[in-house]
Design a protein around this nucleic acid. Structure first.
Length: 561
RNA sequence: GCCCUCGUAGCUCAGUUGAAUAGAGCACUCCCCUCCUAAGGGAGAUGUCGCAGGUUUGAGUCCUGCCGAGGGCACCA
């Protein structure tokens, strides 16, 4: 619709140029906005404001000229010049009601698009090292990352969901040592407890399972406990598998899954790290200093150069990061989105710089990053900091168990990632109108109950009859709903383009609000068949859009509550 | 010290890529079920958009500086 109005204006501008009212160089597109205030019509354009200076006319005068030159179009009821020179467009009743037909035809597909054109996109998220249960921060990453994936799928991208982790290195050695200490009956208080060991109770569970010889099947790891407290390597493999499985269960409870698990160690095993170093050296962006090999990342916007190979011979973590992203590029992902905690933001410039230094045709600014800020959990007005099992942090599982999957997902995804989030447990659990999750779900359930009541009344409803009677929808509350429904595809497209799933949550809150208002003011199941059919169609359209939107957030749409 | 993010109603947050009187919800005051689930709705009140400049016909939105909050600044991952 925006596009059509835009075409009309462009034609009008063309006419004015031919009449000599406007100079020749015109924009090839004009801005059309949805109005905030219904008294301003449905759509508005600011062309006249923008072109007034070049035209040497006052904005309102120019707006009047443009309006006169507008070609006739059935979907426009009238236009109006307002404020400093806006042109407001009032859509005809039929064209605003037509959204219902589109929704009922397209159903689950309403709001989806082919923006992605089947191109390959990879989203990397969570990527927690297997050293303990997932914490709330991982939960935020899981919710945001998963919603981004759903949005990308809905807009026609070919999505791969990936989880990257490290099963070697210092952290994992530390983990193995901690489990070993537990195997030997030591606790965090003992003098021989490993320095910086993991202190949570779950370490003891790992140790017991290892000594029992349990078999562990995680999505990507399968191993049995060797039950030998002296075999550190065996303990390491077991602990990694155990905690990976632990995380799998957390993610499963959260309805988040991955297509691929990627091991940092594989980059060493198959020589990609070494090949990356060679490539960087060949390209001449490296130098040796104090026995270390440096990459001149300052050539690519970094504020200081970075060490790639330490003087003792080992690589810094920065290098596998670059190798990993080169690997992603080589797998053909034209778009890559990394969802991470903001505490990793310093890697952004570094990785991009490293990729530029490879001179492999990777675009500047690739990949995308979505960095989420910290989550603070509150209960009864006080900050919750500890979980019993993990020892030092609130786990994702704690939240899911306490407030449920739907509320947890909604709260973690409903806010812009780059702002700090306060997770209020009491609010998330409250079954009242305070709680946006229930508010939205209730709107869906209400629409479902309309259909149930319809059957109880013994009334018939057919789509054909309803679509023939849509012109009965003339009340302001109904119009507001129609406008809101019409916006949905744009909301989805914009959320997908900007990697901002919270836009969908905000939209659903508004749509549900408009529905409740309308529902309260106007009875759906009235005696008069034409009006009843039309209102049921409206209610059904709202239900469908809420279900679609909740689907994008991974939140259920219950038929009754 | 440098870098990143944030600062909007008492609280939690939106703000459609620069537009028309800045919006919701909660909390507060009143009101609405013989009526499709009141897990709902209506009315009222609520702001120097952190501060100060700048760009622009127009700034919550863009630029600069300052203040405040969080995070990051290793030959650690």
């Amino acid at each position: 619709m925006k596009e059509q109005v835009s075409q009309l204006i462009l034609q009008a501008l063309d006419t004015l140029v031919q009449q000599g009212q406007l100079p020749g160089d015109l924009p090839d597109r004009v801005q059309i906005d949805r109005t905030r205030d219904p008294s301003h019509g449905d759509l508005a354009s600011n062309v006249a404001l923008g072109l007034a200076r070049a035209a040497g006319k006052k904005p309102r005068e120019l707006a009047a000229l443009i309006c006169e030159a507008l070609p006739q179009a059935g979907f426009i009821a009238r236009t109006e010049i307002a404020g400093p020179g806006f042109i407001n467009f009032f859509l005809s009743g039929a064209s605003s009601q037509a959204v219902i037909q589109r929704i009922l035809e397209q159903r689950e597909a309403f709001g989806t698009s082919r923006l992605g054109e089947g191109r390959k996109v990879q989203v990397e998220y969570v990527s927690a090292n297997p050293t303990g249960p997932l914490h709330v921060g991982h939960g935020r990453g899981a919710a945001v990352g998963d919603c981004i994936c759903r949005l990308l799928q809905a807009t026609g991208w070919n999505v791969t969901r990936e989880f990257y982790y490290n099963d070697a290195g210092q952290q994992i050695t530390n983990l193995a040592l901690s489990v070993q200490a537990r195997c030997k009956g030591l606790g965090p208080g003992d003098p021989s407890w490993p320095e910086d060991g993991y202190r949570g109770d779950y370490i003891e569970e790992v140790a017991r399972a290892y000594l029992r010889g349990d078999r562990i099947d995680a999505t990507d790891q399968h191993v049995s406990g060797a039950a030998d407290p002296e075999d550190l390597d065996s303990i390491r493999r077991f602990a990694v598998a155990y905690l990976r499985r632990e995380q799998d269960l957390d993610l499963q409870a959260f309805a988040v899954h991955f297509d691929n698990y990627f091991l940092e160690s594989s980059l060493y095993d198959n020589g990609e790290v070494e090949a990356t170093v060679q490539r960087l050296i060949e390209r001449g962006h490296t130098y040796e200093l104090d026995g270390a090999l440096w990459l001149r990342t300052t050539d690519f916007g970094d504020d200081k150069d970075r060490v790639m190979r330490k003087s003792e011979g080992g690589y810094t973590y920065f290098l596998p990061d670059v190798a990993y992203h080169l690997n992603k590029w080589n797998r053909g992902f034209v778009r890559v989105i990394n969802e991470q905690g903001a505490d990793h933001h310093s890697t952004v410039t570094r990785v991009r710089a490293g990729l530029q230094a490879l001179e492999s045709g990777i675009p500047e600014g690739w990949p995308d990053y979505v960095l989420h800020q910290m989550v603070t959990v509150m209960r009864d007005g006080e900050e919750v900091k500890l979980s019993k099992r993990a020892g030092s942090y609130v786990t994702l599982r704690d939240l899911i168990d306490e407030v449920g999957r739907d509320a947890t997902r909604y709260f973690l995804a409903a806010r812009a990632a780059n702002s700090q989030l306060t997770f209020d447990i009491n609010l998330a659990m409250s079954q009242s109108n305070d709680n946006p999750v229930y508010y939205i779900q209730y709107a869906h359930a209400r629409a479902c109950s309309v259909m149930r009541r319809l059957e109880e009344q013994g009334w018939e409803w057919t789509e054909e009859a309803a679509l023939a009677n849509l012109d009965a929808l003339t009340e302001e509350h109904e119009k507001a709903l129609l406008r809101q429904l019409d916006r949905y595809p744009e909301v989805v497209a914009s959320a997908a383009t900007s990697n901002e799933p919270h836009g969908v949550a905000t939209y659903l809150r508004e749509l549900a609000g408009d529905f409740h208002t309308c529902y309260n003011a106007l009875k759906v199941l009235v005696e008069e068949p034409g009006l009843r059919d039309a209102r049921i169609a409206l209610s059904e359209a709202v239900r469908q859009v809420i279900a679609n939107g909740l689907g994008l957030l991974g939140v259920s749409a219950p038929e009754s509550m």
